Simulated scan of single mutants.
Amino acid sequence: MTDSAPATTANHPAGPSFGALAGLRFAKGHGTGNDFVLVADPDGARDLTAADVAHLCDRHRGIGGDGLIRAVRSRHVPEAAALLAANPAAEWFMDYRNGDGSVSEMCGNGVRVFVHFLIGQGLAVLAEGEALTIGTRGGVKVVARTADGYRVDMGPWDFISPEQARARGTDALVDAAGLDVARPALSVSMGNPHTVVALADRAELDGTNLSVAPVVTPVPTYGTNVEFAVPAEPLVTDDVGHISMRVHERGVGETLSCGTGACAAAVATRFWAGADAPDTWSVTVPGGVVGVRFFPGPDGREHVELSGPAVIVADGVLA
């Protein structure tokens, strides 16, 4: 865990081009290299447009990030009303936007960084072992503080096309630059959509060009994030499964990590491995390593837990 760096001021080369956003306080954080601009807006007074978000996330003319997270109390978010009514403990809502400004349901790395940001801003208090309930567009997430980061109950997983998945093991084809032919894939919902491709070895993983968006057929209704996973050899060591992964996130491009993507990759690999596959997984991404664990949820469904670090690297004020 890393404390915030001293405050800085973000200046755009062309002068005060942030316009109405001038004076806005922000922080920059990441979870295994998946990075975010974070803004505290407890009372929901800040209306950030898609253009604002894209500008802030621009790596050349803004702060830079894979996405933006606005911290707002759930009672000030109309779309969170039903969620808050059913879960009164969900005081805070994670308003997550992709780097292009589009709205997204959830981000597993982002929710860890979000909670770390709340603590650093004095908006929440969380001792090691304690948990905080967070509202997201992907449902309520319970985040617990650990000795070296946070673990998140990501909720239940599901196949996007359950009948096809269970009958054939795949439900889509993925074309990606650098791969010789389209590869079979499996689409998984973690509250947001993912399509997982198994590759043969590290050379294939390294040779896949994710600067170009993969083409998924058929594509899920709201688009999809695409994960390319390679199983370790051996796959299981000391009852822990091991995979390496790269990801192309919708609305962003390739990122150094994706928390929900790591969960989806573990879901798919575990399914393909069969009944004896373990419940605990280590997922290596370009930005580090995250843990994934499957466990029986309180709703009678199988849940997925994601664990990993969260870091705030800087805070500042827009000029």
Rank of each mutant, 00 (worst) to 15 (best):
residue 144 A to W: 03
residue 87 N to P: 00
residue 141 K to C: 02
residue 178 G to F: 07
residue 165 A to V: 11
residue 123 L to S: 04
residue 109 N to G: 04
residue 175 D to S: 13
residue 91 E to I: 10
residue 114 F to W: 02
residue 142 V to G: 01
residue 86 A to L: 09
residue 89 A to V: 07
residue 136 T to P: 05
residue 166 R to L: 11
residue 124 A to T: 07
residue 148 D to F: 09
residue 102 S to Q: 06
residue 150 Y to E: 04
residue 108 G to P: 02
residue 100 D to L: 07
residue 134 I to P: 01
residue 167 A to W: 08
residue 142 V to C: 02
residue 116 H to G: 07
residue 177 A to I: 05
residue 171 D to Q: 12
residue 168 R to Y: 13
residue 123 L to P: 00
residue 181 V to L: 06
residue 182 A to L: 11
residue 123 L to W: 02
residue 108 G to M: 09
residue 165 A to R: 13
residue 180 D to K: 13
residue 146 T to W: 15
residue 166 R to K: 12
residue 166 R to N: 01
residue 119 I to T: 15
residue 161 S to I: 11
residue 161 S to C: 03
residue 76 H to D: 06
residue 105 E to M: 14
residue 135 G to M: 04
residue 154 M to S: 03
residue 171 D to M: 11
residue 97 R to N: 11
residue 135 G to E: 01
residue 129 G to E: 01
residue 119 I to K: 10
residue 135 G to N: 03
residue 138 G to R: 12
residue 162 P to E: 07
residue 80 A to I: 03
residue 184 P to M: 08
residue 140 V to W: 01
residue 104 S to D: 09
residue 180 D to S: 11
residue 101 G to S: 06
residue 116 H to W: 01
residue 131 A to I: 14
residue 145 R to M: 05
residue 174 V to Q: 07
residue 161 S to K: 11
residue 79 E to L: 14
residue 138 G to H: 08
residue 174 V to I: 13
residue 140 V to Y: 01
residue 159 F to Y: 15
residue 93 F to P: 07
residue 138 G to I: 01
residue 111 V to T: 03
residue 159 F to D: 07
residue 158 D to W: 08
residue 107 C to Q: 06
residue 113 V to M: 08
residue 82 A to L: 06
residue 119 I to W: 00
residue 90 A to F: 02
residue 140 V to R: 08
residue 101 G to T: 14
residue 124 A to F: 04
residue 156 P to S: 12
residue 177 A to N: 02
residue 95 D to F: 14
residue 156 P to T: 13
residue 93 F to S: 08
residue 145 R to G: 02
residue 122 G to K: 13
residue 124 A to V: 12
residue 129 G to A: 07
residue 188 V to I: 15
residue 115 V to H: 03
residue 94 M to A: 05
residue 180 D to H: 09
residue 161 S to D: 09
residue 183 R to S: 11
residue 138 G to L: 02
residue 80 A to G: 05
residue 155 G to M: 06
residue 99 G to L: 12
residue 116 H to K: 15
residue 82 A to Y: 00
residue 117 F to T: 03
residue 136 T to W: 04
residue 127 A to K: 13
residue 83 L to M: 14
residue 133 T to V: 14
residue 175 D to N: 03
residue 168 R to F: 14
residue 109 N to L: 05
residue 112 R to K: 09
residue 162 P to G: 10
residue 128 E to A: 14
residue 171 D to S: 09
residue 134 I to Q: 03
residue 150 Y to N: 08
residue 139 G to L: 06
residue 159 F to T: 12
residue 104 S to E: 12
residue 148 D to M: 08
residue 168 R to A: 15
residue 175 D to V: 15
residue 166 R to T: 10
residue 95 D to A: 15
residue 177 A to H: 04
residue 161 S to A: 15
residue 156 P to L: 10
residue 137 R to G: 10
residue 168 R to Q: 12
residue 132 L to R: 09
residue 137 R to D: 00
residue 160 I to Q: 05
residue 140 V to N: 01
residue 148 D to R: 14
residue 151 R to Q: 14
residue 106 M to I: 15
residue 170 T to W: 12
residue 181 V to Y: 00
residue 143 V to K: 05
residue 114 F to G: 06
residue 85 A to P: 00
residue 92 W to Q: 05
residue 102 S to M: 06
residue 164 Q to N: 08
residue 181 V to W: 00
residue 105 E to A: 15
residue 87 N to Y: 08
residue 131 A to T: 15
residue 166 R to I: 06
residue 90 A to N: 05
residue 151 R to D: 11
residue 80 A to H: 05
residue 124 A to L: 13
residue 168 R to H: 15
residue 172 A to Y: 03
residue 167 A to Q: 12
residue 139 G to A: 03
residue 145 R to F: 01
residue 181 V to G: 00
